[in-house]
Amino acid sequence: MMKIGVLALQGAVREHVKSLQAPDCEVVIVKRVEQLNDLDGLVFPGGESTTMRRLVDKYGFFEALKEFSASGKPMFGTCAGLILMAEDISGQDQGHLQVMDMEVERNAFGRQRESFETTLPVLGVAEDIEAVFIRAPLIKNVGERVEILAEYNGEIVAARQDNLLACSFHPELTTDIRFHQYFVQLVRESLESTEQPLAAT
Results as ranks from 00 to 15, higher is better:
23 P>M: 01
32 R>T: 14
47 G>V: 06
38 D>W: 07
6 V>F: 05
9 L>M: 00
21 Q>G: 08
6 V>K: 04
16 H>C: 01
42 L>H: 08
10 Q>V: 07
46 G>S: 03
27 V>M: 00
28 V>P: 14
40 D>Q: 13
24 D>Q: 10
48 E>H: 05
17 V>C: 14
48 E>M: 06
26 E>Y: 04
12 A>S: 06
21 Q>I: 03
4 I>L: 06
43 V>H: 12
8 A>T: 07
16 H>N: 02
48 E>A: 02
32 R>M: 09
19 S>A: 15
41 G>R: 05
45 P>L: 00
10 Q>F: 06
41 G>Y: 06
47 G>S: 10
47 G>Q: 02
23 P>E: 08
24 D>T: 05
47 G>L: 05
33 V>L: 12
7 L>D: 11
24 D>W: 11
41 G>Q: 08
32 R>W: 14
18 K>Q: 15
14 R>E: 15
43 V>S: 10
10 Q>W: 05
28 V>A: 03
34 E>K: 12
4 I>R: 01
5 G>F: 05
34 E>Q: 14
10 Q>L: 01
33 V>K: 14
22 A>R: 12
42 L>Y: 09
26 E>T: 12
43 V>L: 08
35 Q>C: 09
11 G>V: 02
16 H>T: 00
46 G>L: 01
45 P>I: 04
34 E>P: 09
10 Q>N: 07
4 I>K: 00
33 V>A: 12
12 A>W: 05
12 A>Y: 09
39 L>R: 08
32 R>K: 15
36 L>M: 07
29 I>A: 07
7 L>W: 02
47 G>T: 10
46 G>I: 00
17 V>R: 11
9 L>G: 04
18 K>W: 13
44 F>C: 07
29 I>K: 12
15 E>P: 13
48 E>L: 02
41 G>A: 03
44 F>Q: 10
39 L>Q: 11
4 I>V: 12
34 E>I: 03
24 D>N: 13
5 G>V: 04
